[in-house]
Design a protein around this nucleic acid. Structure first.
Length: 965
RNA sequence: GCGGGGAUAGCCAAGCCAGGUCAAAGGCGCAGGCUUCAGGAGCCUGUCCCGUAGGGGUUCGCGGGUUCAAAUCCCGCUCCCCGCACCA
């Protein structure tokens, strides 16, 4: 199998053109054929397709091509996702001259200058990438029906009509609700700041604080806390003397809070009117009242109080909050600070921590104990945070409230916390506000706050009934790999309501509230249904305004009759019927594949929305989940500079090489790793494959059938079966591995064993082989298929069928036997470091075979022991005559026979007594070549044998005795 | 923290669900040989350790256990990766 220069590009172009001319992958309903509808989640067009897209989509295409060859009417459509913020964002950044982005687009995406300048129009940008990506998809050879291509957003008005229908229907079904929701918000951009839009604060989300409204003069000091239960242990207040505070009317009450808190609250549905501004020191030394028992407590200076955090008002519980204790201790140690504020030292000295939670393993004052344990020095010690977290966790999970807590006494903190908050709020002792636990800075450099968005539209994924249906859909579907099923169930339970509309970005406006746009993950859930009718929309030039609700109701839900709907829409009734029929023909989706990162969002939404909108028989049939691609072991990213676009990779290596390399990289949920080294190796293999098939196609020679010929065909059957089963289960790596390497190794062994290969057999094998590989390397296989003299496309050829009649267990056992003999012989040669002149083999005597088979039979019923075995064997006259040797023979074999796996035992029994002498003599020439010496074969009981060391009697079935000179 | 996936010989990676054919597929790399008008091609052999006869020893993250028998089952531990929401 020598290599030849092959022009991949020429082959690929040739067949791509022919496929297109033949409209090979355009699939239309055919009631006489079973259908298969596979989909790949449409990619987002803010950049070129990368090799990670290529990986997942290749798996889809392998499956599609496989099913097509198995006779299924197979549809693999493709579309483009334009919905969302990033395209607009990128476009804006280009407009503003963002150097990093522009360089990335030039260098990685290879966008020419004259195109780049037009990217200030986001739609132009999306169109550009769509055009580029379409080319890449064609080049890599995905078997797509392009008549059904579309993109999303209002720029594809008929798609928008579809989305409108979807959301009106969902709303009527009660799955869309209205509500409020806290988001991280940039006051400058006036929009939510997602994780990827931040300079600082990745992974930071709003947290809800309880505000305890301590009474102060004619108003309140609302102190923020996560631990409202500790109010029973409050001893004082801390205010930052240098921070700016305000007196403000908040929903009609007078509140004293930090200046920034006032602003934040105004974004959280509170009516805020600032009355006056002042420094915190004004409050220091004054007294406030706690609202439970009305105790009067002092306000002390605390510079650790961050006015940017929550209200900037902090109450102090030194028994249970390490920070509070440390702050108090500081003040006790530094009376001069107190005097600066005119506070007598005894005010602080007399403060006693009040214990309100009992915790196993701690005494009265857990905070103080932990501070001592960790040796926290002062308020600025980083260990303080750890101390706080230890106390908090311990008290939350195991703490029990003490009698001082009144009606909550005796309960654990965990159980009663929510109740306390509710009670306090009802009693107007508490309120709440959201804030960010850490600084978050928007890309525009503005510090973010939490805003509560009103009138937000939600998909009610929290609905238990909806969840139940989603679970049922997961149970009913095939999930590849099976282990991902639990992942889906888990994520369905975990999903909360999803804000399904946004104010900015591209998309489709909500039909009943057009200032909102359907959010990107929410407009991409059932669009596979649109593939089934977009063909008609194009062909019959159906206008968006014709696509009234009733049209979709009719097509997708079977509501109404076509005459009526025709009147409403102006679409002829026969076309409506055709669309309905086409939808019903293709639906449900037979397979959808994506990377595992989409399980918690896209794939789960896909399931949810299908169960909401469609009857059970139209729910997805199978979902495949795969890993996330890395490049040479590294996560792919544009900033790291290891971003590989699909187009570049296909340009460099050719479509088939890329496809096969990707297929061989991983399956199930393992992460594939793209390695150039692997691609080069695959390239070499394919060149050799070409050379081999080329050679076989013109080969002539004798065509007698020997055992080795039957062996090759027999092996091929098990390869066919294994590849078929693997692809059925989307185990594309296993399938590719067997189809390429295992078959290759079989053929190699065959060529080695057969001095003059049988051309007919090889051509038969080649015809199967090329078809097994066709889903993986379709271009090359088309070429090889025609090289082998076949008419038509291999893409449409019948998938090889497992042929029982070609299975030859005996031939397989014979090869096992020969291979074993070779291995044993090599082993001896290596150990003795001899260079053999003559090798003598002695095959087992007839009685050994007889006993061996008998033992196999006995052990397939149940485990045999020595005594029982001998008793049965001795019933045979011939065996009895060699009783002494028999006993030795059986004792050596019995363990082995007993532990043989059932399958193997069956194979051995099926093969029966093989003609060791004949087979070995037939292989003698081959063995001579292998060992470059003479080979002589005897039967162990041949009276004329040459056996100077008495080796012959060691012979066992399948393991002849060996003597080497 | 919650959830999911992992840990196998130099590397990648099968096997584990259904315990014995497992010193453990396949690929890559490496070494030796062959082939070739010596291009990153092909073929053969080797690649845990020991062994002058086909054998033996020790391995499948760590520690226990079940079993005649465990990479595979059970318990505990350590470490790695990924997701965690208004975002594609």
């Amino acid at each position: 199998m020598a290599q030849q220069p092959i022009d991949w590009k020429a082959i690929e172009e040739k067949w791509r053109r022919r496929w297109e001319e033949a409209r090979l992958f355009e699939a239309d309903p055919d009631p006489n054929r079973k259908k298969c509808f596979v989909t790949f989640p449409y990619p987002y067009m803010n950049g070129p397709l990368h090799i990670g897209h290529g990986f997942t989509a290749t798996r889809v295409d392998i499956y599609a091509r496989f099913m097509r060859m198995r006779g299924y009417n197979t549809l693999f459509p493709w579309a483009w996702h334009w919905t969302g913020e990033p395209i607009v964002g990128a476009s804006l950044r280009i407009k503003m001259g963002d150097k990093d982005l522009i360089r990335a687009l030039k260098e990685i995406d290879k966008v020419p200058d004259e195109e780049l300048e037009k990217f200030i129009d986001p739609v132009y940008m999306a169109r550009y990438y769509t055009r580029e990506s379409r080319e890449a998809v064609k080049r890599i050879g995905f078997s797509v029906d392009w008549r059904r291509e579309f993109h999303t957003t209002i720029y594809e008005p008929t798609y928008s009509r579809f989305i409108e229908w979807q959301y009106m229907t969902l709303r009527d079904l009660g799955y869309v609700t209205r509500g409020t929701h806290p988001v991280v918000w940039c006051p400058s951009c006036q929009s939510p700041t997602g994780d990827h839009d931040r300079l600082e604060g990745e992974g930071v989300f709003p947290e809800e604080y309880t505000l305890i409204k301590f009474i102060f003069e004619d108003g309140y000091l609302p102190a923020a806390t996560f631990r409202p239960e500790t109010i029973f242990g409050v001893t004082n207040m801390f205010i930052n003397p240098d921070a700016t505070y305000v007196e403000a009317l908040v929903d009609g009450e007078k509140w004293i809070i930090s200046k920034s808190a006032a602003f934040k609250l105004s974004e959280q549905l509170k009516k805020v009117r600032v009355l006056r501004e002042f420094k915190g020191r004004e409050l220091i030394g004054k007294y406030f009242k706690e609202p439970i028992n009305g105790r009067e407590l002092p306000i002390l200076p605390g510079w650790f109080v961050d006015p940017e955090s929550a209200t900037g008002v902090v109450y102090s519980v030194p028994a249970h909050a390490p920070a509070d204790w440390i702050a108090l201790k500081d003040l006790m140690d530094k009376p001069e600070i107190l005097s600066e504020f005119g506070i007598p030292p005894e005010v602080v000295r007399e403060i006693k921590p009040i214990s309100l939670i009992s915790v196993e393993g701690f005494g009265e004052y857990p905070a103080i104990e932990v501070i001592e344990q960790l040796n926290v020095k002062d308020q600025f010690d980083p260990k303080l945070e750890e101390a706080t977290s230890i106390v908090y966790r311990k008290e939350f999970h195991t703490g029990v409230l003490k009698p001082i807590c009144g009606k909550y006494a005796g309960k654990t903190v965990r159980d009663v916390k929510a109740q306390i908050i509710e009670d306090f709020k009802r009693a107007n002792i508490a309120d709440s506000m959201y804030d960010l636990p850490q600084r978050v800075v928007c890309r525009c450099t503005t510090r973010c706050i939490v805003k509560i968005l009103e009138d937000q539209w939600f998909l009610k994924y929290s609905d238990p009934e909806w969840k139940r249906l989603a679970h049922e859909a997961v149970d009913a579907a095939k999930i590849f790999p099976e282990s991902a099923r639990v992942y889906f169930h888990d994520k369905i339970d975990w999903l909360r309501d999803w804000a399904c509309a946004r104010k900015t970005g591209l998309g489709t406006p909500l039909p009943w509230s057009p200032d909102w746009i359907v959010e990107t993950l929410s407009d991409s859930t059932i669009y596979m249904a649109f593939y089934t009718i977009v063909k008609h929309i194009r062909r019959y030039d159906i206008k968006p305004e014709q696509l009234v609700r009733e049209v979709f109701d009719y097509i997708f839900l079977g509501k109404g009759d076509h005459d009526n709907v025709s009147r409403l829409s102006g679409i002829p009734p026969n076309i409506l019927r055709e669309m309905r029929e086409e939808f019903l023909y293709w639906y449900p989706v037979d397979l959808r594949v994506s990377a595992k990162e989409l399980v918690p969002n896209h794939l789960s939404f896909f399931i949810f929305q299908h169960v909401a909108l469609f009857p059970r028989e139209l729910w997805p049939r199978a979902i495949g989940v795969n890993g996330v691609l890395t490049i040479e072991g590294q996560k792919m990213s544009k900033s790291k500079g290891n971003f590989l676009t699909l187009r570049d990779v296909v340009d460099r290596f050719g479509a088939d090489v890329v496809r096969l390399t990707l297929a061989l990289a991983a399956e199930e949920m393992d992460d594939p790793d793209w390695r150039e080294e692997n691609a080069r190796s695959v390239d070499a293999r394919l060149r050799s494959l070409y050379a081999f098939i080329n050679q076989v196609s013109g080969m002539s020679g004798e065509d007698s059938i020997k055992s080795i010929d039957r062996w090759l065909l027999s092996m091929l059957q098990s390869r066919i079966r294994a590849v078929t089963e693997a692809i059925e289960n989307l185990k594309t790596r296993t399938a590719a591995e067997i189809a390429l390497y295992e078959v290759w190794n079989d053929i190699r062994w065959y060529l080695r064993r057969r001095e003059s290969p049988n051309p007919k057999i090889l051509r038969e094998v080649a015809n199967v082989w090329v078809r097994l590989l066709a889903p993986f390397t379709p271009f090359l296989c088309e070429e090889l298929w025609s090289m082998l003299g076949n008419e038509g496309f291999v893409s449409m050829a019948e998938w090889p069928k497992y042929d029982e009649s070609k299975v030859d267990v005996r031939a397989e056992e014979v090869e096992e036997f020969i291979r074993g003999v070779i291995d044993d012989t090599w082993s001896i040669i290596r150990v003795t470091r001899a260079s053999p002149k003559t090798i003598y083999y002695y095959v087992s005597a007839g009685w050994k075979w007889k006993a061996f088979i008998k033992l196999l039979e006995m052990s397939s019923v149940k485990k045999v022991d020595m005594r029982e075995a001998m008793r049965t064997l001795m019933e045979d006259n011939e065996l009895r005559s060699v009783a002494k040797d028999l006993a030795q023979f059986v004792s050596r074999l019995i363990e082995e026979v007993n532990t043989l796996p059932a399958e193997r035992r069956r194979a051995l029994l099926k093969a029966g007594i093989i003609d060791e002498l004949g087979d070995l003599r037939e292989a003698a020439d081959f063995l001579k070549k292998e060992f470059s010496c003479e080979v002589i074969v005897y039967r162990e009981d041949d009276p004329d044998r040459y056996d100077p060391r008495g080796k012959a009697r060691q012979a066992r079935p399948y393991r002849p005795a060996i003597y080497i000179e």
